[in-house]
């Protein structure tokens, strides 16, 4: 399974990669903004994306819309500091598989990833 990691924080991208290293995922790229994420997504067509919301150039929810247009069966885990129910519901309605609010633990992201992988089986 191919994974794309999107977050405007480099330390968060590194943390997500480290936390998910137990899974046998091919990391096809990481991006710090929505536009770069879309470029990598279009080129690599990953199966799973972890997607931040508050980012420069294009926010995560706009990026999610475009990802769903390109490849609707992509499993997207939105990972955001925006900790309000409305944002989570909005992300799910747009097609996200899961929503994780920051700060999150390694256990929490592993559970989200397990659910994604089970869905894909």
């Amino acid at each position: 399974m191919k994974l794309l990691i999107v977050d405007d924080s480099n330390i968060m991208r590194r943390a997500i990669e480290k936390y998910l290293s137990a899974f046998n995922l091919e990391i096809v790229g990481n991006a710090g903004d929505g536009e770069s994420a879309l470029a990598i997504f279009s080129e690599t067509l990953p199966d799973i994306v972890t997607l931040d919301i508050t980012m420069p150039r294009m926010d995560g929810l706009s990026c999610l819309d475009k990802i769903m247009q390109i490849k609707p069966d992509t499993k997207v885990i939105v990972i955001s500091a925006l900790k309000d129910p409305a944002t989570g519901i909005q992300a799910i309605k747009k097609g996200a598989r899961g929503f994780l609010s920051k700060p999150f633990s390694q256990e929490e992201i592993i559970e989200e990833m397990k659910a994604c992988l089970e869905d894909s089986e």
């Binding site: 480099n10 330390i11 508050t54 500091a81 925006l82 900790k83 944002t87 609010s101």
Partner: peptide
């Protein structure tokens, strides 16, 4: 560079978490 990135991420997380109280019209910048 990593520590500047970290303090930005911490500030973003703390501010974003305040949406639980202020609601989704509380908009935060990068």
């Amino acid at each position: 560079a990593t520590l500047y990135d970290l303090i930005g991420e911490m500030t973003n997380t703390i501010s974003g978490n305040m949406r639980e109280l202020f609601g989704s019209t509380f908009l935060i910048s990068v």
